[in-house]
Amino acid sequence: MSDKSHFVEIRHAQKSFGALEVLKDISLNVERGQIVAIIGPSGSGKSTLLRAINDLDPLTGGEVWLDGVQVNKNLPHRQYEKHINEMRQDVGMVFQHFNLFPHLTARENVTMAPKMLKGLSSAEADKLAEEQLEKVGMLDRIEYYPSRLSGGQKQRVAIARALAMKPKLMLFDEATSALDPELVDEVNAVMKKLAEEHMTMIIVTHEMDFAASVCDRVLFMDQGVVVEEGPPSVVFKNPSKDRTKEFLRKHLAGAN
């Protein structure tokens, strides 16, 4: 019997898109309250790994466990759908391009899922939306449609939308990559705040400084494998693998 006490446990994850093998036997454990950054060159499989955790890109091999329950378990279609929809309520996800619902206001973006899935009344959902939008500093834009928000504002609403489901785990896929440089900080500030509240987070990012400042652990991925893994002080300052060094040389050169 293997130990299932890790909060998030990825075991021998393997993923192919047709003939292309994108994840090659990746294993990873994340404990409750930990913050893990995944870095690596474009196309290395970071998004695919993140999207395997909530089964948006189902693995072709290996297992994902969350809080003692297997996410990608083998069930008949209908049962599987029910299971996965329940699992996903506990896993918030934030996308590079926000994916806010353009036909709904900030308030409605946040209230939709809790109303539909948790049976909240309109009054309860409104209160929840106000709390969550307040938290990301967007309460004053609560009645705005996404088209009237800046990128940073959209992303903060998207975070509030995810938080409204009271997730146990938050996944961020390059949450600031699509933003103008001057809007990056407002989103990072929200993520820092979540870190201070000990939200468990897995963050795919290109921002090494941010990763170094909030993360407990950094994974460097390349070509579908985890090349190096460790605390930011080691991975960033004192990497042992050549591929990591080369990647960091390119990325840190631009950053400072």
């Binding site: 909530n54 929809n85 996903r88 896993v91 489901m165």
Partner: peptide, 17 residues
């Protein structure tokens, strides 16, 4: 954009929802 549906699925909505 299929990201719209994905955002819904991520929140726990079913395909039909």
């Amino acid at each position: 954009d299929k990201g719209q549906k994905e955002a819904g699925r991520t929140l726990g909505l079913s395909n039909w929802q």
